[in-house]
Design a binder for these strands. Sequence first.
DNA 1: TATTGTTATACTCTATAACTATA
DNA 2: TATAGTTATAGAGTATAACAATA
Lengths: 160, 160
Amino acid sequence: MTSEANRGAARGDDRDEIAELSAVLRDGIGRVYRRFRTLRAHDELGDAAMGVLARLRKAGPQSLTELSTEARVTPSSMSQTVNRLAAGGFLERRDDPDDGRRVLFHLTPEGRRVEAEGIARSRAWFEGELGALDARERAALAEAAGILQRIAEAPDRPEA
Amino acid sequence: MTSEANRGAARGDDRDEIAELSAVLRDGIGRVYRRFRTLRAHDELGDAAMGVLARLRKAGPQSLTELSTEARVTPSSMSQTVNRLAAGGFLERRDDPDDGRRVLFHLTPEGRRVEAEGIARSRAWFEGELGALDARERAALAEAAGILQRIAEAPDRPEA
DNA sequence: TATTGTTATACTCTATAACTATA
DNA sequence: TATAGTTATAGAGTATAACAATA
């Protein structure tokens, strides 16, 4: 457990520092996330729906399983999210020609449009705030972003 | 990364860097936030409810307006959240003796207990991940946390 | 009049359980 | 049997609108 020198330390005096960092970082993340959510215009799609559209734009047509895995929600939850999107005309179902069980979800032109425009407001706000920082602060955020993405994908820890 | 250290630059070549940082950071924040949410045990309170309990512990009894302002939700939303918490016995309403319109929400012993225990699972996971980082990475996260908290509280920008 | 708080109603997002269809 | 996807139902969280009580 306490073998490695650098990584996986978390022992002795580090523990207080880590607990403090955990609390502060979690608080900051929660605040910014909720701020994004509240900056959404009233006629815009919700965050789960927007996430699906963004995923389809970035990765092309996806199956339900792929979408639910990427978003870390159950297939059932994702099925309902894509139902709302399909009802609104933002995506289409198409049967996978190679596997009769699978369904591939494709962006419609309308879906592509709202994906491009949908995050404009909160993005303008966030970019404005980031632009007001100095280069050193932005560098810290850039490094933090990479670490957060990595942590978010980490498998559950067996938790000794 | 370009040279200068003047705040509020955000012009010329910086713009691409900021747009990229915005997208990546937002993605990382969203992923970690949702990960926190899904790590919640099924019998635990939701994130809005836990946020209220945490606020009451940290800041003492609060009015509805104070709670809703701090959480950036409408007073109506917060009223419903505290209703659920009161129904579960996690907090109590007490009339403000100095202002008949106000109600102060107090933690009950049970509320204090679940607040202390409730975040244990996701905190253990997060602290485990943070403990696996090296000191330089943790320093970047610590700086990022402070910046995020500051940004989250920034007033809306007039939108140039 | 302004502020504080509430209820009624509706939508998004999520989950578990039970189900169908295909591999 | 295993995998992919769906529907039914329920609960949390949020919002707007309409309201009551107090300052």
